[in-house]
Design a protein around this nucleic acid. Structure first.
Length: 394
RNA sequence: GCCAAGGUGGCGGAGCGGACAAUCGCACCAGACUGUAAAUCUGGCGGUCGAAAGGCCUACCUAGGUUCGAAUCCUAGCCUUGGCA
């Protein structure tokens, strides 16, 4: 059973000798998170196709949901009546919510001519946007985001920020960066007023710009956020850029605060890159999206490597008669029971069952990888594990 | 046997005299998928040369024919489906 404690805490059990990787435990009012850990994304209070029992079966310790989406539907009044996001979705473990900053800025520049689902304006006051669902207008501010996240009741919440998008001009980037600092400060103040029961993470921005990233992190540390999140496109884009981004602040990262990488991408390779640079927790949507689209993860023992991104595409005809499981080395529910041929058939016929089976495998796979990474850090063998997976030095 | 409709790329199915190597869907091949507007999106899909633009060749059941020009019109044959016997 997971230990329950009233307060949020973070303690490091073991630090890797050669990298910044560490095995730690994040303790929350709803249970512990043994890190490094992956958090599946349950945007609208559901990890698509999976229920809490499935998630547990896949060794998930925590899920991340979204302020923007839940605020729009079903609306916080309804969730409030259920006592928060976790009781609403019947998840009894730790939860994280994102602040909505990313979603709003994501709407920007995507479709400015659209009537529905666009940013109307972003000013220091907040982000005025039209809902992608019905076009209704809403103003999201740092204070509003904190209030919503307070009602959602996650154990870990995020400061309201404006990530730097690729489509931004240099001027816009600086504006967004400076604005994020102001917004985070206001998030912090609002969070204190609400009783600071949840662990608020400050989000560093700055893309791959060393000066900005450091300024951002220094600000967060100085303000006193309980945790740190790394945001922005450069965290998830590809392992090389992820590495560059994290390296800009490597020496500033504190030992006593958890680091969450928002949308850490790059599959297993990206995970090693992130963990070696101090990432404790991360979320990523592509793990489950890839599953739904037919891409299933395979271990190095199955032939998984950096080149094939540790995955196979079960839509491919060549799997139509394949009696093997996705991976003979996998203990997940799907691999224990079903063949590649069957899954190929389900993808081919668009049978809904496949979303569940495929998502379960990919989540179990990543969680298993995280477990192995944790064990290897504790055993002082991270380097060896990385060699097996990446076939190169970490 | 008679009547009717029809035979087009792996399949379904457009096109019904020039702008057709032939719309589209499926399948197939290749790719993408950072805090999920993603059960999504992109590209390819006769052969060949070319980096590309583009060129050349072979193609719309078969064989003839009409025409400057035919997947498209005519004749014959073969085949399929439906109706009547």
């Amino acid at each position: 059973m997971l230990k329950q404690s009233k307060v949020f805490s973070f303690w490091v059990r073991k630090v890797d000798k050669e990298t910044r990787a560490r095995a730690a435990v994040i303790s929350t009012p709803h249970g512990e998170i043994k890190t490094p850990a992956f958090s599946p994304v349950a945007t609208r209070a559901s990890v698509r196709a999976l229920d809490p029992a499935d998630l547990k079966k896949c060794k998930s310790q925590v899920v991340l949901a979204n302020t923007y989406h839940l605020y729009l539907t079903p609306g916080i009044e309804i969730i409030k009546k259920f006592g928060g996001l976790a009781p609403f979705m019947q998840w009894n473990g730790p939860t994280i919510t994102d602040s909505g900053g990313y979603q709003v800025s994501f709407l920007w520049g995507q479709n400015e001519e659209e009537k529905i689902g666009r940013v109307v304006s972003i000013t220091d006051r907040g982000a005025l946007f039209s809902s992608h669902i019905d076009g209704s207008r809403h103003l999201l501010t740092p204070e509003k985001s904190m209030e919503i996240q307070h009602i959602l009741g996650a154990d870990i919440i995020m400061a309201f920020d404006q990530p730097l998008g690729r489509q931004y001009s240099d001027k816009q980037k600086i504006e967004a960066f400076e604005r994020t600092l102001k917004w985070e400060e206001r998030s912090f103040v609002a969070w204190k007023k609400l009783g600071n029961k949840q662990a608020l993470y400050g989000i560093t921005q700055g893309d791959t710009d060393k000066r900005l990233r450091r300024k951002s992190l220094e600000f967060i540390l100085q303000t006193g956020f309980p945790g740190i999140a790394m945001g922005g496109e450069s965290i998830g884009k590809d392992p090389k850029i992820t590495a560059d981004t994290l390296d800009t602040v490597a020496d500033l990262l504190p030992d006593d605060k958890p680091l969450h990488a928002l949308g850490l991408g790059g599959g297993p390779e990206g995970i090693f890159v992130g963990v070696a640079r101090g990432v404790d927790t991360f979320d990523n949507t592509s793990i489950t999206r890839l599953a739904r689209n037919g891409w299933l993860f395979i271990y190095p023992e199955d032939g998984g490597n950096i080149k094939n991104k540790f995955r196979i595409d079960l839509n491919k005809r060549k799997f139509a008669e394949d009696k093997k499981s996705i991976s003979p080395y996998c203990d997940c529910y799907t691999c224990q029971n079903f063949s590649r041929a069957y899954l190929h058939h389900l993808f081919n016929t668009k049978e809904l069952l496949v979303f569940r089976l495929a998502s379960m495998h990919n989540i179990y796979f990543i969680n298993t990888l995280m477990e192995r990474i944790r064990k290897s850090i504790i055993a002082g063998e991270l380097k060896d594990l990385a060699k097996v997976w990446l076939d190169k030095k970490l």
